[in-house]
Design a protein around this nucleic acid. Sequence first.
DNA 1: TAAGGAACGTAC
DNA 2: GACGTACGTTCCTTAA
Length: 904
Amino acid sequence: MTQPDDRLVLVDGSSYLYRAFHALPALTNANGEPTGALYGVVNMLHKLLAEEPEARFAVVFDAPGKTFRDELFEQYKAHRPPMPDELRAQREPLKAIIAALGVPVLEVPGVEADDVIGTLAARASGPVLISTTDKDMAQLVDEQVTLLNTMSGTRLDPEGVREKFGVPPELIRDYLALVGDTSDNIPGVPKVGPKTAAKWLNAYGSLDALREQADEIRGKVGESLRAHLDELPLSVDLVTIRCDLALEVAPEDLVRQSPDRETLGGLYQRYGMRRFLAELQAGDAAAAADGTGASLPPNAPEVAYEVVLDDHGLAAWMERLRNADAFSIDLETNSLNYMDAEIVGVSLAVEPGQAAYLPVAHCGPGAPDQLDRDRVLDALRPLLEAEQPEKMGQNLKYDMSVLARYGIELRGVAYDSMLESYVLDSTATRHDMDSLASKYLGVEVTSYEQLCGKGVRQVPFAEIDVERAGHYAAEDADIALRLHQLLYPRLQAESGLLRVFSQLEMPLLPVLSRMERHGVRVDCDLLERQSEELAGRMAEVEQRAHEEAGEAFNLGSPKQIQEIFFERMGLPVIQRTPKGQPSTAESVLEELSARGHELPRLILEHRGLSKLKSTYTDKLPQLIHRDTGRVHTSYHQAVAATGRLSSSDPNLQNIPVRTPEGRRIRKAFVASPGHRLITADYSQVELRIMAHLSGDEGLRRAFEQGEDIHRATAAEVFAADEVNDEQRRAAKAINFGLIYGMSAWGLGRQLGIPRDEAQTYIDRYFERYPGVRAFMDRAREQAREQGYVETVFGRRLHVPEIHSRNRQRREYAERTAINAPMQGTAADVIKRAMIDVDALLNERFPESRLVMQVHDELVLEVPEAQATAVGDEVRRLMEGSDRGMVSVPLEVELGVGDDWEQAH
DNA sequence: TAAGGAACGTAC
DNA sequence: GACGTACGTTCCTTAA
């Protein structure tokens, strides 16, 4: 495929789906899902795509929900029957197929597809073809805009409109207002049909002129016109297609991409579209046979990668960068750790296939003279530190952190292909560039391992031959750019996803970079003392255990424990692991210990101590950075499917807190001298979100009145005025269980009560909070219908297994569908809060810093004198970070201290 | 020797 | 089987 020409094809997806649904037989696929309309529209699209292979393209859908026309006129479309389920069920699959075909899909809330099409048509610079079955669109026709009904094959240019309606395009609005539309419930003038309307408009020239001369019209029609004169402006307003929307997408963005053959094949398969599947596979085979490669997309560019070694080349690339709206950047370094990495080279790309590599520190045998690192960085600095041009890349947090250590603050970080992929499908297991290149571009890039080797044979990047390294590095920048060009339009097609990407994930990226780089102070001596103490206690326990067992064994080996317990000592098997082995998990050991066995108790104690020592008190000191004396974690922004962050090296999100033993580790997380740590925790945030999502009045009231939620739940479930501690504990377990989609069995086990008793608690809970059950049913239903669930902010989580025939997998998907909107919305809320807090600190408290995030908690390090002021502001921002989208108040608890334990 | 799975345990 | 999301450690088997 060549570059798109300036033709633009806009398809009115909703109108076709509707027409196809009524025109075609009600087919279903093997699963009984309706497919008739789907087939019709896909067939139509195939034809259209074949007819217009070079044009820019978009398929536009009505967004569900009210539009401004409903505001204008409450009767608008009031008589229209609700969309049949069989039709609604075909919408999302259709959108998925179109997206997989590489065609942009647009859906803008609050307006109709017509308005989006009108606006895009008005902004187009070249010829526009609007494919629709809706006659109202005739008002958009002019010398540049043509209408096409692909189903009937009719094309309408201005002359065609005149022939068909008897009036020119510019009078179509007046015409429609006079005639009215029963299906949209637009009144019009009774007794006036197409012929009369056309006759009048031709005689008087316009509706306004006609209204002024209304007295002249004789007969019953004249009376009818005079009786409805006042309603006509409203009718005109209703039928007028808006051509001036503020859209986030422009005609030139609507570039067709190469199809995602894998996804497309899967969809064709699933919906029984054997003909399209066969065509797709035939296309693959043909491409493979003629040597162009099945996976090579038709728009794969010619690549021209350049290694820049001199001032002349640098100047030329600087010029290209300055003239670009956006460019792609990637650093090559000698370490994966952002705190240690030294820059070895810089790659840049401006257009697909055209990239440069600027080596600055290659030192292997035969390495050529290179530009000096500081000179290159100084030359790039003004561009890197400016908002414009925009920057794109893959995992830019890393590049941003490394550049910051060279004194360059990367600004204008607008697109990260890793995050684009994550927002599009957070359930994909990998978002690394090699996987994305293969999945979306059909390109197998050189891997780092292929270039540098691995294990003992690994060669530092700086010692790789500059030409080979240059191709690898330039390719990285190029691929990131091409991924962006492919993925970003897919985000633009879904306003919720675009919002999550551009208002949450991208702005969060620099915040995380700053947090990681600043790090958190850890008291190494304290941890070492704790390690010694733990070692001593472990040795004691170990010795007693060996005596008890009558032989020496490894207390850390579940296999050896299993042998001693269940084979030699004949203890009862309480539970089995998923692999069928007798389990030695904590709950089992507790049960055996409660039955009076000493050895299980000793093993439990040993496990607890060993966990603390190896994971925390031994490990954390090793991770203290030699230069900063602090620990610098990595937050991963594209890992957790629900939208949460994760943390590693070290994982700061699982530092113990529940037991006094474990909590001592938090004492080692300290503030710098003259500073304090502030903790700010969202209180019961997921339950509050559940109250919002379910709209359950009882639950909402409890939060609005600031009640102790577990106590309130206990009062309802146990019908008690006075709640005792045991009841509150049970209610707490119920509340947490609900968030995870728990079963009676699970609750029973948690509380140590029989299954049926747990079931009565759950039944009573749902009786008292009926909205919660309805919410859960809705979540499952939504997952089944659309294949995904959403957070309040519009983040999506796909749950394809909701249709699995395997009950276990299906039920797992159902629990995910229930949990993800709550966990994900909480993640959205705190991400927004982090962005707000970071902005506040940069602006007003530059000496205060965010240092940690633990899902519902932020930790800050603040100069002593500012602690109160910063704490108050942080609370205010956090409590407002839902932007009013959560209809239950959010509450934040603050703590201040010299260490993390004290601050709680 | 390295890689990877299983089992376990920490957090929210 | 049975309660969602992560990461890290240890043990231990398998592959090179």
